[in-house]
């Protein structure tokens, strides 16, 4: 059988970190994505402008470059700010925080496009009706807009999630001990890089397969109201 030289446990805990990074950045990207989508559709020129710049810049630059910029640049910025307010010590940016924030920030831009299309597909008259009933903006969002836009957002959302899951591998480069990093360390000491990277690949395949299955189930659920032939 497969001999992992006692690294099986640390790879599994690395896999847990991969999932944690992925889920936390997913939450951040969804919040940013919905906010940006609403900003893009709003009448305010400033909000609209900021949203356009944000999505354009993010989609023009590789995620790895953004991650290195935020990790190394953020490190410098934080320390300079701390120095200005009189702090003498050195602050290390936590790679977990840097990774989650960067991936969330990047995928917020992709989510924004998905959500924008989804919001546009909800009948405007229903939103007006909600407001006519005296609902607050948040209530209209929660009761009318969100449940209906999810059906249209799901396919794009699912794609973004699958890409995001794979992007988490990049956090290994800034030193976070996710499963890719554990595999690197393990292959360094055992001289078996192919074995370890293959194990990590298989774990990723399991994650993506589970995601695809779950997304298909969700899509069926949210389309329950849509009548289909045969």
């Amino acid at each position: 059988m497969l001999d992992l030289h006692g690294y099986g446990g640390s790879i599994l805990s690395g896999a847990v970190i991969t999932i944690e990074v992925a889920l936390l950045s997913l939450i951040i990207s969804m919040i940013l994505g919905i906010a940006t989508a609403l900003a893009k559709l709003s009448k305010s020129t400033i909000a609209h402008g900021i949203a356009i710049v944000y999505t354009t810049v993010i989609r023009g630059i590789p995620d790895l470059v953004l991650m290195l910029l935020i990790f190394f640049g953020g490190q410098m910025l934080v320390n300079e700010l701390a120095y200005m307010v009189g702090y003498e010590g050195y602050i290390d940016i936590n790679p977990f925080v840097a990774g989650v924030l960067t991936i969330g920030f990047i995928f917020g831009a992709y989510m924004a496009e998905t959500f924008r299309g989804a919001i546009l597909s909800v009948d405007g008259g229903q939103l007006e009706a909600g407001r006519a009933y005296g609902m607050t903006g948040l209530q209209v969002f929660r009761r009318i807009l969100f449940p209906q836009m999810m059906r249209h957002a799901l396919p794009g959302f699912g794609n973004n999630w699958l890409v995001l899951l794979k992007t988490t591998a990049l956090v290994s480069i800034i030193g976070l001990e996710d499963m890719v990093r554990v595999a690197s360390l393990a292959s360094g000491s055992t001289q078996k890089p192919f074995t370890f990277y293959l194990v990590v690949s298989v774990i990723f395949l399991v994650f993506t397969s589970i995601s695809v299955g779950y997304l298909q189930w969700l899509e069926r659920r949210y389309s329950a109201s849509v009548r289909r032939e045969a």
Binding site: L170, A183, S201, F204
Partner: peptide
């Protein structure tokens, strides 16, 4: 399509 490009390059 199911694994990260980074892992493929490392492989």
């Amino acid at each position: 399509r199911g694994t990260p490009l980074l892992v493929q390059v490392f492989l």
